[in-house]
Every structure is written in C-alpha cells, then in structure tokens.
C-alpha cells in the first residue's frame, strides 16, 4: 500500500480530468502533443539545453519536490525511451558527419536516465536514483520498486514518475511497425474506430508517495504486471487479482480501461469488462493518446477521480454510477503483450 500526497502532470490536456468533451484538446495528424507549462523554477540556461522528455519530467516534478515538507529519499522514474529526439539527433550527426567531430550535448541528454539524473542534480538529492525502461511496463516497475522501497524503509518518501516524449523519429518507427492508425482519426472519436493502430501521445506524471495516510490524496493498494499474449490468461489473472485484493463483497466502482481504439486488441478489454459487471466502465486514452508509460497518466486520473469524487461523462463507456467513487481499477495494455492492473482507493 502506497499513499499519494502530491500529483502533477504535463499532458496533452491542460488538466487531465477535463470536465467536458468540448474542452478536450484535439489530436492533430493522429498525435496528441503535450501542452507545455511555463516551467517556472528551472533556470533558463538549463531549460534551453533540455530535450523534451527531460523538460516534461523535470517540469512536472520540480514543483512537487519544492512543495514537499519532508525530505525526499529517492527518485524512481519509468520511461521506455527517454530523450528520443536527442538520441536520433545525435545519431543523425554520427551518420551525416561520418563519425567525425561531434558535440556531446545530444548524447548526454539522450540517455533514458537523464530525467532522474537531472532531478537529482537540481534538487541535490543523493538518495536512491533509478530509471526503469521495460517498454510498456517501465512505469509499473517504477511503482513496484517504490512499493518495495517503502516496505524496506517505512519512514521514507519518494518521487515516482513516468515520462515519454513523441518525436517525429519514434513516431516514424512505431508507425512503420503498425502501431498507429493510417487514416486520420480524431481522439474524440477514438473508440468508434474499427481499424488497426492507435493515436500517438506523450506526457509526464509525477507523484510524491510514502506510507503516511494523513492528508493523502489517494492510496495505491495493489499492482500486478504481466507478459501475456492470450486473452483468457489475462482474464484469469484479473480474477485472481480481484480475489486477492478486494474485501468480501467489495466492488470496484470504476474500471478505468486502457482501450486504445486498436481493433486488434479490443478482445482483451471486452473480456475484462465482461467480468466487471458491477463497475462503471471508463476510458482515458482519448485524453492522452497511447505510449509506453501512459499508465502513469492514468494513475494521475484515478487519483483525481477518487480524491474529487468526479467522473466526467466523456470518460464513461458504461455507467453503473453509484453515489461515490471509492475504488478505481486501472487496466492497461501496451503493444498486445504487456499488461498491468493498478488498484487505487480513496
């Protein structure tokens, strides 16, 4: 069990819990790019050199670190690719200058651990520092790491986060690999789409977490991650997860599904939904697009939903609304094989 005390996100929406569909920012050419904040608090000279992933991650996290009244014991980040733009910029130099004399800035910025490293530097944090990069379960492993850290050190407080950027390069690569739609589909009509592929997205979500229930926004009660290609296996894991973590007679109020508009994977979500007969079924990827650490953004949404007891209509697929939302179960799926469940409570 982990208590969440502060949350922040840089996402394609000004606020991830947008009230009405009219206020939802629309995708352009199948891409949902982040709305970047002014990044106050990052020295301009440093900000200028930051790639987008580092900028989003540091920009979302620094204000939280500054607001935290207890000392921070470590920084745990999940990102599949880190600074992809810098990475390919450096690669382009390598090829175009035939391995000639190159400048190191892009190289240093491109390593996935640059986000956690910059955060430790800017906050002078000499504690635990790590970056998990296991593609669609990078953020879940970061969360699992923090869960273990808080069992090992019950009085500690950690920064947990997930970050991913879109660059034209990783869009090209993932598009060539058939992960994005060929025809243009608006995010507002994402779930009506019957073709293969999804929309590309990006973002950063940061959380200050510890074991202290006092004044917490939400608590993360359970996590399960798995590698599976079979629908029935995911369903049996879901049943096992619910039996293990729900009290007798207890129900999940909202099942927050990572449905992505990709016809090839609809059956995974349908099977889980069929089992969640008493829960309101909600979706979030029309707000975020899809990317490896999008589950970090879904966790931000779930924390807000239980904290504010609001579930905007445009998120709802099937309404079995009860008077209040106390439990949210997030199910995410990345590229057909990496699955996760996260149980969030008030």
């Amino acid at each position: 069990m982990i208590y969440v005390h502060q949350i922040a996100a840089v996402s394609p929406q000004r606020d991830l819990l947008v009230e009405t569909i009219d206020e939802v920012n629309e995708s352009v050419n199948n891409i949902l790019k982040v709305v970047e904040p002014p990044y106050e608090g990052i020295p301009l000279s440093i900000l200028r050199r930051m790639g987008k992933a580092v900028r989003m991650g540091v920009g979302a996290a620094l204000p939280l670190i500054k607001n935290t009244t207890v000392p921070l014991n470590g920084i745990v980040i999940g990102t599949a690719n880190g600074g992809m733009e810098d990475c390919i910029k450096f690669l382009n130099q390598v090829i175009e200058f035939e391995e000639g004399t190159l400048t190191p800035t892009n190289f240093v910025q491109s390593t996935p651990n640059a986000i956690a490293a910059q955060l430790s530097l800017l906050s002078s944090n000499k504690g635990y520092n790590i970056t998990h990069v296991n593609r669609g379960l990078a953020f879940e492993n970061a969360l699992l790491d923090v869960w273990m850290l808080l069992k090992e050190n019950p009085s500690h407080t950690y920064l947990l986060g997930g970050v991913e950027e879109i660059s034209s390069y990783n869009y090209n690569i993932d598009h060539l690999a058939n992960w994005f739609k060929d025809e243009e589909v608006s995010n507002k009509k994402l779930y009506h789409s019957t073709s293969k592929g999804t929309l590309s997205g990006e973002g950063a979500a940061m959380f200050i977490v510890n074991n202290d229930p006092q004044d917490a926004i939400a608590k993360i009660d359970a996590l399960h991650l798995m590698h599976a290609e079979d629908v029935s296996e995911v369903k049996s894991q879901l049943i096992h997860f619910l039996n293990k973590h729900l009290g007798k007679g207890e129900l999940v109020d909202v099942f927050l599904s990572g449905e992505s508009g990709d016809i090839r994977f609809v059956s995974f979500f349908q099977n889980c939904e069929h089992h969640m007969k008493d829960s309101t079924i909600a979706r979030f990827k029309h707000l975020t697009g899809d990317f490896a650490t999008v589950s970090a953004l879904s966790l931000n949404i779930a924390c807000q939903v239980v904290n504010k007891n609001i579930l905007p209509d445009h998120l709802i697929k099937i309404n079995r609304h009860k008077h209040s939302v106390n439990t949210v179960l997030i199910y995410n799926l990345h590229k057909g094989v990496q699955h996760s469940f996260m149980l969030v409570r008030k």
Partner: peptide, 12 residues
C-alpha cells in the same frame, strides 16, 4: 516463455 516479473533497468 518467462511469465514472471520482467524488467529492464537503465542507469548508464
């Protein structure tokens, strides 16, 4: 066919 927890870490 490894079904348990899988992870990859990057700290340079």
């Amino acid at each position: 066919n490894i079904k348990g927890i899988g992870n990859t870490i990057n700290t340079a």
